[in-house]
Design a protein around this nucleic acid. Structure first.
Lengths: 388, 388
DNA sequence: GTTTGTTTGTCTATCCAATAAACAAAGTTG
DNA sequence: CAACTTTGTTTATTGGATAGACAAACAAAC
C-alpha cells in the first residue's frame, strides 16, 4: 500500500526546489531573474530557494552575464562535480564500468573480461573493479552517491537477481552484497532496463516520453519507458518482449512458449543460421564477411532485420511509442539489417501509429547499459535529496 | 509541453481536500476524527476541509455514530446525488445509455437499436437519446456533470473519431457536436478503453493497478490500465492489441499486417469457421448449439479459447499485469472457452509473470463500456473540482 | 448518582512558504 | 547627466497546516 503523502509546506518547498533545480540543469547558465520568468515562481521565492541550493553545494554563482539594458545578471550553474556515481554493466563474459559526475560526464572508464560465473567468484572480481572506480573520484561534497548495476537477468525489487540463465544464477542477492561492501546505495536492474535509461538520458532517445529499447544480443531484452518512467509490471519485472510469440506454431522455446521473437531475431538466431551455412564464426566475423561482400551472410542479416521488423511492428502497435531504439551487440549490424527492418515495420505496423514513431539505433553503442546504470544511481540520489 | 505546476498553498489545500474526499468515498460513513487518523492530517485541518466540502454540497453529516467510550462521532457521507453523469455505448447496431450518480449507481438505463451509420443520422438518434437520460436526472446541486461516450474506433485527443471501420466513419467531430448541443463536458473514447475503466472501477478489476481489458467482439480491442491510469501512447491511441501478430506468416489482415490476433480469436473468426462447417447463425445460435451438445461447435469455441490464450500469454509477458479481463460479446462464451484459454496461457506465459496474474471475465457483462463511459465523465468532474 | 477517563471536534496561537510591492544596486541609452 | 531597465533583496502580508488547549459528550466503574 502506498503511503499517501499529505500536503504541507515542506512539500511545497520540495516541489519548488525541484522545479528550480531542473530549470538550472536544463538551461544553465542562467540568472535568478530568468528562473523566475520561466518557472513562474516569484523572484523572492527563487532567490530563497537558490540560496538553499548554494548552501547545499549543488549550485554556484559563476560571475555576471551580459546585461540586456539593466543590471548585469549573476549567472548560476549546477555543480556537476558535487558528487559522482558508478555504473556497471555486468555482462556474461565481460565487465564494463564508468565513473560519472552528476551530469553524466564520464570521468573514468574500465573494462575487464569475466571468465567466472559462480556468484562468489564474480563478487571477487567485481569488488576491486568497483573499488578502483570509486577511488578515482575526485574529492567532492557528496562523494560517490551510488552504484548502479545492469545484469543480464530478472531482478526483483529487493535487488536480488532472481534468474540469469546465461550466468546460471538463481536468487543471488547482489544488491545486499555490494551495499554491505561499499556502504552506499546500490541499484540493480536488468541490462535492457538500464540500457533504456541510458539511451533516453544520453543517447538517441533524449527527451522522449514513450520509448522502447530493444537490446538485441544473444537473446532479446527490452526496456520500456512510458511517461518518462521505466515501466515495471505488477511483480516488478516486465519487458520480456524477447518472449513475445511471433509465430504461434513456431519453434518451441525454453521458456515453454512457441515461436518467441528472440528465436528468430537475436544474435543466437543469426549464429545458428550461419552455422547451418557452414560459417562457424562469431558476430564480428560474420559482419566482416558481409563487409567483404559475402551475399549469403548478407542474406542472413537481412533476414534478421526482417524478423526484427516483425517484432518491432508489434511493439509499435502495442505501445504507440515516440521512439524505438535498437541497442546492444546486434546494433553493430545496422548497415545490413536496417533496410529490411524498416521496410518490414512500415509494411506491418498500423498507419496511425507509424506516423509518430522514430526507429533509431543506439547512439551510445556498447555504453547504453553502463551509462544508464550510472544514471539510475544519480537519479536515486536526487530523489533522496527531494525526500529528505 | 506540460506546464509545470508550481507549488503554493492552494496546491496544498487541493491535495489535502482530495485526500479527505477520497477517504470519505472509500470508508464512508466515517467521522472527522477517523479521517484524521487514517490520513495523518491534523484534526483541525480535517474539520476545516470537511466544512468546505459540506459548503460545496459534496459531503453531509448523517447523525451520530456509536461511541467507543467517549463522545459520539458525527458521521459523514459523500452526497452521491450531488450530481449525475451520462454514459453512452455507441455500438455498431445499438445504443446503450445510463444515467448514474457520482458513485456510479444507475438511476436510469436505455437501449435502442441503431440502424443508421451516417454520422448525421446517428446524431439525430443520439441527441434525443441522451436528452431523455439527462431529463431523468433529479434536481441536484451540480446537475448532469458530463457525458461520456464509448465508440468502436480510434479517437484522438480532441474527441474526434478518426477512424471507425465498422461504422464507416472518418474524422467525425463527435465531441464538438455533442458539447455544442448539451453545453456540458463530453468525453469520447474507444469502446475498449471505457470498458477497461468500467471493469476496473465497478467490475472484476476493482482496485487493481495494472490491468488489460480485452474486448472480444467482431474484432478485438484492448484497454490498457497501467499504474491505475489508462495508458495512451504517443499519439493518444494505443491498445490496438487486436492487431498484434501471433503468426508472422499467417493470414493477411486488412491492417496490412499478417496473422493478427483478431483474425483467430474474435467473434468474426468464430463465425467464419462456423460458416465453413455449415452453420450460418450468429453467436447466440452457436452458443445455443454448444449448450445443446453440438460437439463440432464446442470444438470451434475451444479453438477460439486456445487462440485467445495465445494472445493473452503474450499480453502477460508484455505487461506483467495484475489482471486480465475478458469482456464484450465473446465473454458470454465463457463456459466453452475458459478451459482451453487458461490451459494455453499457463503453457505459454512466463512462470514469473504467471504467478501474479488473474484471468477474469467481465462482471458487468454488456455494461462494461457504458459504465466506464459514465465514470470517465464523473472523474473528469472531480478533476475540475480539484483544479478549480 | 458520581467519578474517572476517553473520544470528538473546535478554537487559538504559531509557524512557514509564497507572494506582491517597495527598494537598492547596477547597468544601458540618448 | 537624466531617464529608464534589469536584477535581486527586503518587508509586510496572506493563507494553510499544526500542536496543544479546551469544552462537550459519552461509557464504565464505583
Amino acid at each position: 500500500m502506498t503511503k499517501t503523502t499529505t500536503g504541507d509546506q515542506a512539500l511545497i518547498k520540495r516541489i519548488n526546489t525541484a522545479i528550480v533545480l531542473e530549470a538550472i540543469l536544463k538551461e544553465q547558465p542562467l540568472s535568478r531573474a530568468k528562473i523566475s520568468e520561466i518557472t513562474g515562481l516569484n523572484k523572492a521565492t527563487v532567490s530563497s530557494l537558490v540560496q538553499d541550493l548554494i548552501d547545499n553545494q549543488l549550485v554556484r554563482e559563476i560571475g555576471t552575464g551580459v546585461s540586456s539594458g539593466g543590471r548585469k545578471p549573476v549567472m548560476l550553474e549546477f555543480i556537476a562535480t558535487a558528487g559522482y556515481s558508478v555504473g556497471i554493466d555486468l555482462g556474461v563474459n565481460y565487465l564494463r564500468g564508468v565513473l560519472v559526475d552528476l551530469r553524466g560526464t564520464v570521468v573514468a572508464e574500465r573494462t575487464a573480461p569475466l571468465s567466472a560465473v559462480d556468484p562468489d567468484d564474480v563478487f571477487n572480481v567485481l569488488r576491486p573493479f568497483i573499488q578502483s572506480l570509486v577511488s578515482e573520484a575526485p574529492p567532492s561534497p557528496f562523494g560517490v552517491v551510488g552504484i548502479g548495476v545492469g545484469v543480464p537477468g530478472l531482478v526483483d525489487s529487493s535487488g536480488s537477481v532472481l534468474y540469469a540463465p546465461n550466468l546460471g544464477w538463481r536468487e543471488v542477492p547482489l544488491k545486499d552484497a555490494l551495499s554491505r561492501t561499499f556502504g552506499i546505495p546500490v541499484l540493480i536492474d536488468n541490462e535492457a532496463n538500464v540500457g533504456a535509461i541510458g539511451e533516453r538520458t544520453f543517447g538517441s532517445g533524449r527527451g522522449v516520453s514513450n520509448m522502447v529499447y530493444v537490446s538485441v544480443g544473444i537473446g532479446i531484452g527490452t526496456g520500456i519507458i512510458l511517461q518518462r518512467t521505466l515501466y515495471k509490471g505488477a511483480s516488478g519485472f516486465s519487458g520480456e518482449l524477447g518472449h513475445l510469440s511471433v509465430d504461434a506454431h513456431g519453434k518451441p522455446c525454453r521458456c515453454g512458449n512457441r515461436g518467441c521473437w528472440e528465436l528468430y531475431a537475436s544474435e543466437q538466431a543469426l549464429l545458428d543460421q550461419a552455422r547451418s551455412l557452414g560459417h562457424s564464426g562469431d558476430l564480428d566475423e560474420l559482419l566482416a564477411a558481409a563487409d567483404a561482400g559475402d551475399e549469403a551472410v548478407r542474406g542472413l542479416l537481412a533476414g534478421i532485420g526482417e524478423y526484427l521488423g516483425i517484432g518491432i511492428a508489434n511493439i509499435v502497435n502495442i505501445f504507440n511509442p515516440d521512439a524505438i531504439v535498437i541497442g546492444n551487440r546486434m546494433s553493430r549490424a545496422q548497415p545490413w539489417i536496417e533496410q529490411a527492418m524498416r521496410r518490414t515495420v512500415e509494411e506491418r505496423a498500423l498507419n496511425f501509429h507509424l506516423r509518430g514513431v522514430q526507429l533509431l539505433f543506439a547512439e551510445l553503442g556498447g555504453r547504453s547499459a553502463v551509462m544508464g546504470a550510472a544514471e539510475q544511481a544519480v537519479s536515486a540520489f536526487f530523489d533522496r535529496l527531494k525526500a529528505g
